[in-house]
Design a protein around this nucleic acid. Sequence first.
DNA 1: TTGCAAATAT
DNA 2: CATATTTGCA
Length: 544
Amino acid sequence: MALADATAFPYGLRVLVVDDDPTWLKILEKMLRKCSYQGWNLCFPLSTNCSVFTVMSIDGETSRVMKGVQHGACDYLLKPVRMKELRNIWQHVYRKKMHEVKEIEGNDSCDDLQMFRNGCEGLEERGLFMRADSDTMRKRKDVDKDHTDQDSSDGATVKKARVVWSVDLHQKFVNAVNQIGFDKVGPKKILDLMNVPGLTRENVASHLQKYRLYLSRLQKQNEERILGAARQDFGHKGTSDNLNLRSSFQEQSGNGTTGFQHGSQKIQAQSNMLDPHLEDTKIVVPLKVPDKNGTSVSDVIDPQNVTSASPLGGVLSFDRMPVNQDRKPSETMILECQSWSGSVPPKQFMQYPKHNRERCDLLGDYSCLPKPDLEHPITPSHLYAPPQLVSMSCSMEGDARDFSDVKPDVLGCMKSLSPALMCTVVDSVSAQLSDSVVTSTNSDQKFSSVEGLSSAKDCHIDQARNQAPLLTSEDANIICGTDLACLPDDLSGYQLQGIGWNSIDLFQCNDVMMLNGLQNNWYDDPELSSEIMEFPLLDGCLFA
DNA sequence: TTGCAAATAT
DNA sequence: CATATTTGCA
């Protein structure tokens, strides 16, 4: 495999590159161009009689370039190659040339030789060339102390590989951001907190840049969705008998008095959430929902540092959520979490790097998941039957009737959200259930039609108020809703659907949630769920 | 040090 | 070709 040959020519160096990647060649050429000095061009096309830049394509070896030739042994450089590497190449040239010089001793008048010497000196001045004689070497090493470790070893100084932001790394990053507080974050602080060897401030800064971009993008989506939902909310009450409330929402043009009221109030709430003053201080806040013992589920975020709302939507997970009392408690629920607006990008997952592929396994090959389809709800036939739709809408208006037979279920639903509940502050406020209309979309099912629900406070997620100064339960006269699909037993699944922050925000994680449903139940293990859920779901959307 | 945006890499 | 990452700069 005579792949390469660094040969000293009278006026330059010949480099054989074992790579036909045009981009790569361009880079190399550029670098070589920089090396040119006093006619000692290293690369064509700067000079016709100097360097020869030959490209060879070698199977499976498309990312390497010859650094030089040492007695027939080939050293390779991984790209990208830096100046230092070229300097090494030059040393080979120099040695070889010197060897030739000795052979033709006494012929100092040779023009070529003189040019060569001049060229070497010139390159040396520019730090591109290191003379091979010991004195100069010693001097160099003193000067380039920071390079000696690389240069002295095998000479294969390879540029530091680009950082791959794996899930783990990103998780650390988000942890750091959350701990610092979004208003105070800086690349350096994050870097310090992350404590990852090799990671530079620039790396973090870059990632932070991307992260912010992502957040703002997400917020825009949220915004659109909320506006859309607010519009669709008009007159929704009249459609309670619609088999598919979701589609009916889409088609509604917005009339009806009560619906209007809801809609307007939602808009108001939204303006709160999108308060420009909050814009820059958004933070991902895993809602700390106490479990039955009152202990906090999340141990990642210091609540003292939680300063504001997150533009990210809430991510709710459901485990064995009882939709009706006939349902066996062991039934696994799948949160369908579709977007009713249909505007949500079907994929909001991190695009895992190829070389990090194993991480993908954790989440499964989401690319294979069916895209949520409004017309055809996600129904992988081998997993569960098509969910039937149950629409539920709630409001605070009207009398709070006694639906004690229903409330436990609803509350159960809400409580079941807790273990892995990721919610923004504002989102949490919306977790209200009130006077409602629940309509079974399939009359022959066991699901009992629910005429109403308890008061808003009853269904309020306990801590929501504490963390949501922006809205009171009175302000947020919001209909809560979730979009559910259940695994069937003898029946098919159900969907609970409604309007409100939760439902809106749920939708933006449609695929995520579905994925979780399709995967084995991560939430079976509370610890697992609180840990795993927190980031892969929420931040897995980062690289949408 | 930071945040941005252009350049570059994948 | 679209994104992701790096680099250069104010």
